[in-house]
């Protein structure tokens, strides 16, 4: 019997792995960065599922938000 919670866990964990693979195989750098941010948000939800609320808040603000901003700023420098 597959419960709903197991499906959510599988989707979150599998989604994180799939976005990580897509991020590393993406042709365009901007695409890769966006996929990395998406992975950060999926992982944030995984932290919530695991009951790590403090880590989830930090990951949403730093892991997904700030790292993404830094990466995009660097990409803009590289394109100039």
């Amino acid at each position: 019997m597959i419960s709903g919670e197991l499906v959510i866990d599988l989707l979150l964990g599998g989604g994180a792995v799939v976005t990580a693979v897509l991020c590393l195989t993406a042709k365009d750098l901007f695409q890769a960065i966006l996929l990395f941010i998406s992975m950060g948000l999926l992982v944030t939800l995984a932290w919530v599922r695991l009951g790590a609320w403090d880590v989830a808040i930090a990951e949403a603000a730093i892991g997904a938000g700030l790292t993404g901003a830094l990466l995009i700023a660097t990409r803009r420098q590289l394109n100039q």
Partner: peptide
């Protein structure tokens, strides 16, 4: 409750950015 210096600092940094 969940929260603290790192989260608050990161949020404030987001405002600065």
């Amino acid at each position: 409750l969940p929260g603290g210096a790192f989260q608050a600092g990161a949020l404030l940094a987001g405002a600065g950015i």
